[in-house]
Amino acid sequence: MTPLESHENDKDKELIRLELAISIFLRWGVFVSGTLLAIGWVGLWLKSGDVLENFRVYRPEHLSVTIDTAWRAHDYAMLSSILGLAVLVALPISRVLLTAYLFIKQKDHYLAAMALFVFFALLGSFFLGIEI
C-alpha cells in the first residue's frame, strides 16, 4: 500500500501529491547542481591541478571578487562551480517557499506563516554575508 492509497481524506491526498512534487524538485535540483559542480571541478583540476595547500591560511576574498576575476579570465570552470554551489544553496530556500505555497493552498495559515518566516530569515541571512 502506497502512502497515497493509505490516505482516504482528499486533503491528505493533496498534501502527499505536493510532497511528491517537492521530492521531484529536490532530486532534480541536486542533479543539476551536481552536474555543474562536476564540470567545474574537472575543469579547475585540469587547469591548475591540486590547489588545496593554497587554503592553509585564511585569506578573505568576497564572492563578487572571485566572480569578477573568473569572468575577466574566462575561467568557465570556476564560474560553473560557483553556479553549482549557488543552485545547491538555493535549493532549501526554494523548497521552503514551495512548502509555504503548499500550506497557503491548504488554508493552513499558522504553518504558512512559519514557512514564510523561515523563507525570509533565509533571505536575510544572505544579506548578513554582505559588508555594507
Binding site: H62, T66, V89, I93, S125, I130
Partner: peptide, 17 residues
C-alpha cells in the same frame, strides 16, 4: 543553508574545496 548562504556571499565557500 541559512549559514552557508552567508559564508558563500562572504567568499569562505571556496569552489576548489
Amino acid at each position: 543553508s541559512a549559514s552557508a548562504s552567508a559564508y558563500f556571499i562572504r567568499g569562505d565557500v571556496r569552489p576548489e574545496i
